[in-house]
Amino acid sequence: MDAAVRELSYSQAIQEAMAIAMEADERVILMGEDIGVYGGAFQVTGDLVERFGPDRVMDTPISELGGAGVAVGAAVTGLRPIFEFQFSDFATLGMEQIVNQAAKMRFMLGGEVSVPVVMRFPAGSGTGAAAQHSQSLEAWLAHVPGLKVIQPATPHDVKGMLLAAVADPDPVMIFEHKLLYKMKGPVPEGHYTVPIGKAEVRREGRDLTIVATSIMVHKALEAAETLAGEGIDIEVIDLRTIRPIDRETVIESVKKTSRLMCVYEAVKTLGIGAEISAMIAESEAFDYLDAPIVRLGGAETPIPYNPELEKAAVPQVPGIVAAARDLAKGVR
């Protein structure tokens, strides 16, 4: 990579992507609660209102259903809105417009329209914000044909995938883990895209494939480094997009390593891990498996307020290390 590549935080990378999109295309507008002078609850829009004015960086009232719907309507009729839900938990209030309208409008109208809306969802636990501000609901949306759902894990990817999302003619939902916002990493200047629907092998290995999403990619990489010291060689795949899933990358990896583990923060049951597991079970990679598939996901509970319980409710590095060691050694 270019030695001159700067480091930006994940939130700065999002902000830069939005600014580039707005510079390039008058039709791009930002909408959301407190994204103007306040700069967004997580300071992601920051000072963009000063640069682009309140007509393009629009504070909405606290009206998620209406706001999301206005974004959908504007997208259908010529604008390119990027709508911020203040917390991903409030997707629940916007669900009607996302699921019944945005996802289906093109289909129901026989392809006469498209819905180029981007929605951003600050997600995940770890901030002590308790049960209604800490959820990981991405699998809900990934269940809906018509939507694309992405979970970029690095500053580089979030910039490139957001720019890909803005250019995409269909609705793209971006889940941003709140603990990633401050994470820094190399981010090229200017316009570039990272394709939606393409996973990335973050670490190559022979003994075991870990498919991880969002912040769990970093935890899995940390676990892999620990286990490398024990001679266990782990391949870590950053899934990046959960709809549509990059089947090929995952299947090829499992054929190579013969062992699969899925790590994600959302509640384990009926989540992305179930989908990946079923996908492998249905594929030619099934014959290559040397051990049952392992899923590590969130506990079957809302996210608790107490910090120790909160940590225990989602996969952490020591747990990933232990489970991966057992799986690699065939201990079950």
Partner: peptide
């Protein structure tokens, strides 16, 4: 310890709870 500030409640006194959702 499960709720914290945003979910404080006292059902015995008729407070059905604070709420994280506006």
């Amino acid at each position: 310890g499960r709720g914290g500030s945003m979910h404080i409640a006292d059902v015995s006194k008729g407070n059905l709870g604070a709420n994280g959702i506006v």
